[in-house]
Design a protein around this nucleic acid. Structure first.
Lengths: 367, 367
DNA sequence: ATGAAAGCGCTAACAT
DNA sequence: ATGTTAGCGCTTTCAT
């Protein structure tokens, strides 16, 4: 039996190591290592010999072995939960693109249920990722501790855990909900409705809360109206015309999907006490609601205003031209990455939670 | 100065190793390894001691170190090129989901240009991924060789390289183009048009080729009509009514986007010699074309038929209800993974190229 | 069943 | 600038 390892066949065979290259080049293994380490000091002559030998053998550095010793992988784990929402398609694209620009690769964990987050996260830790970004899922404080202990920084994207030492970057969904309420009230709507997405999600909860809270203030039956200066300013003008505003109708989509929006809107629009404006927890739901309204013969925005949340690409399509609340995606992504990088470089730095302000985009489905 | 490594503070500190666990449990390091290796022989008593110690220290196996020695990472690299097309959102979701079910994680490489594929692929190889899936990009035969040499199997998704030893799983795009031609001809359209996507892409080229080839056969001015039995059968009937069929109009969208479809359709519909049917290289282009046609007052499908390609979710929305050609995504994904797994398990197996058949989906934009 | 020992491919002192 | 040496954390013989 021939020992191929030492035969000429070795050239071009799989997995040449630094030792093989060193032998062929007639240098030490360390010299090979230095040649492939940016900034290390190697004489040009040695360097050339090494590169020539490496090329002959088809040598490529083994990132795994390097990681074992440097304790850094240049890999960021991204946990994506139930990614049906096209909003996250764009988010994900941005994350991978910008991480790569900074020399990081993305190990993706596609999680179907919140319950799987724990197991998934532990796997990510085992792979020694340099950091973890979690979208659309919260963390138990036990898990947060586990990450802290492992020394792997985590940033939550569009979720937050109050009281835990978990970094978070979010759109200010409460503010977004308030904006919608303000806009609809300002254009004279009085019979409002809300279509909820996933009820457990904090995005849904916060959007709804901001919306309803602002309506309550408007009715003047809440003490919140004097809680802050800006609220008070608006409060005076609106309390006058606030009479007769009922609590909003409420309907459940259950998921952030077009189909769910279609169905929820139908239930809403078959009622006797019809709304004159609908705020939907996401754009996809809103597009379903819009199509349903048209199907049922409603004139939008004259009979019925519809407004979404996210500002995904499709909202600008002429057929929809949907009014919505724009999440500052690019800034959210940049901030998330910056927060993560900072936590990687300064492990002892404090927990950071940031809420970025959304923008109201008035298009053709509100007046 | 206190040596924290040997102090009680070690408990709960980052990165306990098997040695730490072994010391605490009073066993050998190998025993710890065995405890965490499924199927290894450990006495229940030892096992319990180890698990208790591991729990105290917060020990987690280091997947990187394990990979170094087992030569397998359980990671599949996915190269995604220009992923603007929502079709690939679904594809990607399916890939990650099904790979995870088989115990594999996904390392994502987001590539903007074909030119970056080489560099990216070499990076993937350095990370010792067990296999690579490449979507929407071809490989030079040099790159194919590089992968073969590294012993890392590669499967192309919806691309193929003839003559190279590269596995590929594709939708039969040529057949899809033919289906569209057949359907439009059968419903009496005679002034056809094609809107191209990315002209360099093989998907675009193949769809266009199948479409045009079939039209040529119909006109009876091609010898291809007698090349196969089925063509001949159809040929007789159609040659009779084939007279007067002009070569299709041609317009360029340039990208697989809605906006590009909108613009391309406008150019097409401002011509004097209007088409009565448009085949678009992708659904997103077709949706743009459809909206443009409506904007310009065309009745679809009466004045103008429109048909897309892919069958993305949105095509079924009532507002679009777009006729299209369905790529068998799930089967394509399954086949790709099966091909990859086979190549991983049997490194010497032959190169495989598979074309899966698409299905014509007639909805409301064709008659 | 368990421990001792070798080594995966590499980096990083430490000498020289 | 270069070689020597000692590991990184783990799996896997090989003894016992």
């Amino acid at each position: 039996m021939v020992d191929f390892d030492n035969s000429p066949d070795k050239i071009g065979s799989p997995t040449a190591s630094q030792i093989d290259v060193a032998k062929l080049a007639g240098v030490s293994q360390a010299a090979v290592s230095r040649t492939f380490t940016p900034g290390a000091s190697v004489a040009p002559a040695t360097r050339d010999k090494v590169l020539a030998a490496a090329k002959m053998l088809g040598y490529r550095p083994n990132a795994i072995a390097r990681s074992l010793i440097t304790h850094t992988t240049n890999i960021i784990g991204i946990v994506l939960v139930r990614f049906s929402n096209p909003f996250y398609w764009h988010v994900f694209k941005q994350f991978t693109k910008k991480l790569q620009q900074q020399g990081y690769w993305t190990l993706l964990f596609n999680v179907a249920e919140d319950e799987q987050v724990e197991e998934t996260l532990l796997t990510a830790l085992q792979y020694q990722v340099d950091g973890i970004i979690i979208t659309s899922a919260t963390l138990s404080s036990g898990l947060v501790d586990e990450c802290l202990r492992a020394g792997t920084p985590v940033v939550l994207f569009n979720r937050y855990v109050l009281g835990a030492r978990a970094n978070a970057v979010c759109c200010d969904n409460v503010a977004g909900g308030r904006m919608v309420a303000n806009a609809l009230l300002a254009s004279g709507h009085r019979r409002l409705a809300y279509i909820a997405g996933e009820e457990g999600s904090s995005t849904n909860r916060d959007r709804e809360q901001g919306f309803i809270e602002r309506l309550k203030e408007h009715r003047g039956d809440s003490t919140m109206v004097v809680e802050s200066f800006e609220h008070r300013e608006q409060g005076f003008a609106e309390r006058v015309e606030g009479a007769g505003l009922e609590p909003p109708l409420w309907e459940r989509a259950g998921q952030y999907t077009y189909e769910a929006g279609l169905a929820a809107a139908r239930r809403l629009l078959e009622r006797d006490d019809l709304p004159d404006a609908i705020f939907c927890a996401s754009d996809l739901i809103a597009m379903g609601a819009l199509d349903q309204a048209r199907l049922m013969g409603f004139k939008v925005p004259d009979d019925l205003a519809i407004i979404g949340f996210d500002d995904i690409d499709m909202t600008a399509w002429p057929n929809y031209n949907l009014s919505t609340v724009r999440q500052p995606v690019d800034r959210m992504v940049d901030t998330t990455i910056a927060t993560l990088m900072n936590a990687i470089e300064h492990p002892e730095s404090d927990t950071v939670m940031k809420w970025l302000q959304p923008t109201l985009i008035q298009r053709g489905t509100t007046r």
